[in-house]
């Protein structure tokens, strides 16, 4: 491993521990949650809305540095945009936002927020006036391999 590789990872790793977007949002307007069944990573993304615009995005996370930073850059991207625009974010653009090379095996970590927002719109729930609503988590990829 070159020094640069390790240094790149160190920056990802530090952001994963210290992202300004990683925080619990009290009473969000929209919240999405889900996990990656292959590795067990879990994230929740919460939005504060003003009209159709996302004015604040925050995430909670349990898992690897790549999925945390994936959620962080995704949250940053979401602020100021409509939910519709956020749902149109392509994997290529998400990788671009991520800003470091990712191997095929790890790209699912970075894509976790996209999967949650796009593939599971039924999980989108308006929480306004409902107080605490527990959202059901779902599996993105239930395939298990014998190892």
């Amino acid at each position: 491993m070159s020094k640069e590789d390790l240094e790149t990872f160190r920056r990802i790793w530090e952001l994963s521990k210290d992202s300004p977007y990683m925080a619990k949002m009290e009473k969000p307007d929209l919240a999405f949650t889900g996990n990656n069944a292959v590795c067990g990573d879990w994230i929740e993304i919460a939005f504060r809305m003003k009209g159709k615009k996302i004015v604040e995005a925050r995430f909670l996370h349990k898992g690897c540095a790549l999925s945390a930073v994936g959620a962080s850059v995704f949250s940053e991207f979401a602020e100021g945009k409509t939910l519709e625009a956020v749902r149109k974010l392509t994997p290529q653009k998400q990788l671009e936002l991520f800003g470091a090379p990712v191997s095929p095996a790890r790209s699912k970590c970075v894509m976790l927020p996209l999967e949650i927002i796009k593939k599971n719109p039924s999980q989108t729930r308006s929480l306004k006036g409902e107080g605490e609503v527990k959202l059901r988590s779902y599996k993105i990829n239930p395939s298990q391999t014998r190892s």
């Binding site: 491993m1 070159s2 590789d5 390790l6 990872f9 790793w13 292959v38 590795c39 067990g40 898992g63 690897c64 540095a65 790549l66 191997s103 790890r106 970590c109 298990q144 391999t145 014998r146 190892s147």
Partner: peptide, 22 residues
């Protein structure tokens, strides 16, 4: 995280496995 660790090993041409191992 184990997946991050496995990627870092891979960058050094070392194959290890990460996850719940079924």
């Amino acid at each position: 995280h184990p997946h991050d660790l496995a990627s870092l090993f891979d960058a050094e041409n070392i194959c290890v496995r990460a996850g719940n191992h079924c």
